[in-house]
């Protein structure tokens, strides 16, 4: 079998693609990548269609071993490196493709600069989709590998047995990672359930992502909001990015694994152009909100799509990874890999 073997899983990585948003009418959460921009770029680097499932990494990355002739991978969304294990420690930078041959082990360490990153593999995984998606929804054991996060010893079957040699690519435009304006929000559908003072406080105050943050949503610390008409409503539908406020007045921003319906008033929803930014946030990060119109949100989304397409169009070429023998033989370790290598 052609596989990527999980030597050590790290912090519960899951397979994610664009999810299954079309079966919310059956009560199935949409799931899918928290940061779809990073997923698109990772897939483009290894030559995959944009919606191919990749490994979504949070907190601490895994150690993996190549159990096929050759794989091509790309790590995107973090400045953490891909550490190729061997006699010497060699680090390949993120945001570029790299080809690794059978038996090679590599490790991705702590992700201190982001809430989420992606490891895409050329060709993707040979796993049966559930409702047309490989996305993992752990709570109902749907998708991915047996509906769960990856664990030590898993073998992820690959569609491509041998990634052919070709020029490696590098994403040089990382401006999409650095957006830091306020998170934009469209009011509704239950903004009229809040006092005017609370709405004012929500948009003028600063919030912090608490430790209660996962793929389902993140609880925020900051100005406490007051309901004007009680905090229970007859359940209605929920979208990704919805900001719901339970009785304690502390907002929760709902992410990809959100339930499809719910009974708390929703002040507004983060616009789709800014949802990937939420995914990148981690506990302790500060954020502010700004209200925008639907038309502004639609324009912002088009801008994001254009910027992502441009980042992909502008891919440069990357240094190839030469195997260790070649590196030693030519005694060119520092010369070729340059600043990306650190000698122990």
């Amino acid at each position: 079998m052609n596989a990527l073997r999980v030597v050590s899983a790290g912090f519960a990585p899951t397979l994610q693609d664009f999810g299954r948003p079309h079966v919310q009418n059956l009560g199935v959460p949409p799931s899918g990548a928290l940061d779809t921009t990073a997923l698109r770029i990772a897939n483009a680097l290894v030559g995959n269609p944009a919606d191919t499932a990749a490994i979504e990494l949070r907190v601490i990355g895994p150690t993996l071993e190549v159990a096929s002739d050759a794989v091509r991978v790309a790590l995107v969304g973090t400045s953490a490196t891909l550490e190729i294990m061997g006699e010497r420690r060699v680090e390949a930078p993120s945001h570029q493709s790299i080809r690794l041959t059978r038996g090679r082990r590599f490790r991705i360490g702590g992700l201190s600069d982001t809430g989420v990153a992606y490891l895409a593999v050329e060709g993707g995984f040979a796993i049966e989709p559930v409702y047309a998606s490989l996305s993992t929804y752990v709570r109902a054991r749907i998708g991915g590998v047996d509906g769960r996060a990856l664990r030590d010893g898993d073998a992820l079957p690959l569609r491509v047995e041998r990634a052919e040699e070709r020029a490696e690519r590098r994403c040089t435009d990382l401006s999409w990672r650095r957006e830091n304006g306020p998170i934009r929000v469209i009011l509704g559908p239950q903004d009229d359930h809040f006092t005017a003072d609370s709405l004012e406080a929500f948009f003028s105050g600063e919030y912090t992502v608490t430790r209660e943050a996962d793929r389902m949503g993140m609880r925020l610390d900051g100005p406490v909001l007051k309901h004007a008409r009680g905090h229970d409503i007859v359940s209605d539908g929920i979208v990704t990015g919805a900001i719901q406020v339970p009785g304690n007045g502390r907002p929760i921003v709902l992410l990809a694994d959100h339930q499809t319906t719910g009974g708390y008033p929703k002040l507004g929803a983060v616009i789709s152009a800014d949802v990937p930014r939420l995914g990148r946030m981690k506990p302790g990060d500060a954020l502010r909100f700004a209200a925008v119109s639907v038309e502004q949100a639609e324009a912002a989304r088009r801008v994001l799509e254009e910027r992502t397409a441009r980042a992909i169009e502008w891919f440069g070429s990357a240094e190839p990874w030469l195997d260790e023998d070649a590196l030693y033989g030519r005694n060119l370790v520092s010369g070729i890999v340059g600043s990306t290598e650190s000698v122990p």
Partner: peptide, 15 residues
């Protein structure tokens, strides 16, 4: 009613 820029709510009642 608005539900972000990827959905809208058609609300027929509140009960």
């Amino acid at each position: 009613l608005s539900a972000g820029d990827t959905a809208l709510v058609v609300e027929f009642g509140e009960t």
